Amino acid sequence: MWDRLLTDCHVLTMVPTPGDPLGVVRNAAIGIHEGRIVRVGRRTELAGTRAAEVVPLGGAFVTPGLIDCHTHLVFGGTRAAEHAMRRAGATYEEIAAAGGGIASTVRATAAASVTELLDQSRARLHALIRGGVTTVEIKSGYGLDPASELRLLNIVRTLARSEPVRIVPTLLALHALPQGADRAAFVERMIEDLLPTVARLGLATSVDAFCEGIAFTHAETERLFEAAAAHGLPVRLHAEQLSNSNGAALAARHQALSADHLEHLDEAGAAAMAAAGTVAVLLPGAFYTLRETKRPPVDLLRRHKVRIAVASDCNPGTSPCLVPQLAMNMACTLFGLTPEEAIAGMTVNAAHALGLAGEVGTLQPGKAADLAVWRIAEPQELGYWLGLMPERRIFRGQDQ
């Protein structure tokens, strides 16, 4: 006997079939046992199946639980004042040069107690959960010294152990250079001191960096990635956000799970990503907040058959986004994704970006029973509405 049988629904399996990129099964049912999917099929095919609980969904659409594969969720304070500065015309670089940007969040984060950081981060996490997220990546990066980064990753671990959501912790080891710091000494400390400690304690499952003119160089990033590989940790990269620094090709060379942002990606970078299987993570919230005008080259990614993921990039300065479906809408409206691409971007492709494609992202037997139930008439509405919330969210087989 199964634990649950969800009936009277239409299922977006996210396993493409000819002519149907969403793999829709209409008039469907889903069998769940011990937190996993055991059967997905037409309701008539599952008729007579025994389950401890039968849950009719009244014609709703069911997707895999949403996957937010790029967030900076743990931080102190806000940067609302910088929002006003941007509206007055200040650029990202000008705000950073004036002591704002990442540096201001680092100060606010250092000033907050662990309890305050937990409370603030938990509230943001709850907002994503309400929006249908069942898996979320959370980066460190607002500590900028080993002790502070470990503090943040331990907060991420506490959230993972106390909330009904799958959390993927990432060490953002090279995010920004502290003001007045010796550059070589800082990079050395983060790679030779912090990274081995994080690996030994199991506080992160991947390593990230910000490769950009205002951040870290190719050589510094490459050194970090080589050290990560030595510790058995996969990598991802903030790349080509503000300029074409060939970061995507660098990421691909190290078999990165993802390269993220990519507004200035060129064809060589796209080809390298395709060859390496590196996922393109698009972050329309940052594009919108920064009022950028150069869009990621979506047609280039399509032509090279690079998987496209979409994420909220929730962070205090450039993407204060707490509604995952809004990121899907913005990916369609601002970047030209189809609704089907946007849905895949926060399900199956986001799972690949986190190295979790065997566990989540599609509705198939054996996968985790992480689902979102939507009161919509057609799947395309998931790319249409602004801030749509699911009717219910199921995590590991149970309503949460």
Score class of each variant (00 low, 15 high):
H10F: 05
M14T: 05
V15T: 14
D20R: 05
G23V: 09
I32Y: 08
R36K: 15
G41F: 01
R43I: 14
R43G: 13
V62W: 12
I67L: 01
T78G: 03
M85L: 10
A98I: 02
G100K: 03
R107I: 12
T109D: 04
T109K: 08
V114R: 15
R130L: 14
G132A: 03
G132M: 03
A147C: 09
S148P: 03
S162Y: 10
E163W: 05
E163R: 12
P164G: 10
V168Q: 03
H175R: 08
G180L: 10
D182W: 15
M190A: 07
M190F: 15
D208P: 06
A209M: 06
F210H: 01
F210N: 04
A219H: 15
E222V: 14
N244G: 05
A248Y: 02
A251L: 04
A252P: 02
Q255T: 12
V279W: 06
V279P: 08
P296M: 07
V298I: 10
H304A: 02
N315C: 04
V323P: 03
L326M: 15
A331R: 08
L334F: 00
F335W: 01
G336Q: 01
G336Y: 01
L337Y: 02
E340S: 07
E340I: 10
E359M: 06
P365I: 04
G366K: 04
P379Q: 07
W385P: 03
